[in-house]
């Protein structure tokens, strides 16, 4: 058998197999890298908090107001409850039910906004009671750590609101829901982060 006896067919039939899809899409990989970076940012902030918290003789300082635990527990429930409509939105989009998906995304947006509103009221009350960013390491660490988390929640809420608006012109279907999937990942990250920060800053 010589090399000339084996040739590829000149007009080979079109390949009907679907193109190879990578197990992890580039978009998902990018969001995971973003979340990894953000986690390291918060690891640095928690490291800073641990230094001040563990080296202080009394925490919180006696002349400063205590953090409101009751309203924050309520706020935590609001944030964790938002995971339910978020999951529902993703499941609805995958099941090709765009209206249900859009409604669930809107509900998640509202719960996220409610979390931010309650935290804003809490901060306002704390400032009026004398806990400011300049109130020593206690005030500074509290506002920096919790403020950084609040900023991330705000970014996620803006993302969710954008998804809600875009869902009107481009329904969330089983074929078009990559943005929702990435937003869900980010929302889980934001909620998971609060599960660490709340016991550390408010309870410990």
């Amino acid at each position: 058998m010589t090399a000339e006896t084996l040739v590829m067919p000149r007009h080979s039939p079109p390949d009907s197999r679907p193109a190879a899809v990578p197990p992890v899409s580039n978009t998902r990989l990018a969001v995971i890298m973003l979340i990894t970076g953000e986690t390291m940012l918060f690891a640095g902030l928690i490291g800073m908090y641990l230094i001040f918290r563990l080296s202080a003789a009394t925490w919180p300082p006696p002349d400063l107001p205590r953090l409101p635990l009751g309203i924050t527990v309520l706020n935590t429930i609001v944030l964790f409850a938002s995971i339910v409509p978020m999951r529902l939105a993703l499941a609805s989009a995958r099941a090709n039910r765009p209206d249900a998906a859009a409604r669930a995304v809107a509900r998640t947006t509202m719960l996220g906004a409610l979390f931010l509103a309650i935290q804003g009221i809490e901060w306002f009350r704390l400032v009026t009671h004398g806990l400011k960013l300049s109130s020593g390491t206690y005030g500074a660490t509290f506002y920096v750590v919790i403020g950084c988390h609040a900023f991330h929640v705000l970014a996620a809420v803006v993302w969710l609101a954008t998804l809600t608006l875009l869902a009107r012109s481009r329904p969330l279907t089983s074929r078009h829901h990559a943005g929702l999937e990435m937003c869900t990942l980010y929302w889980y990250f934001v909620c998971g982060l609060w599960a660490v920060l709340f016991p550390l800053v408010y309870v410990y």
Partner: peptide
Amino acid sequence: DPVTKAFNWSILFLMAAPYTLVAAV
């Protein structure tokens, strides 16, 4: 010294964080 203890815990935490993240991802 409590400051020593605080630094030790913080260093341990910050040392473990990237390894945990890289291992998990």
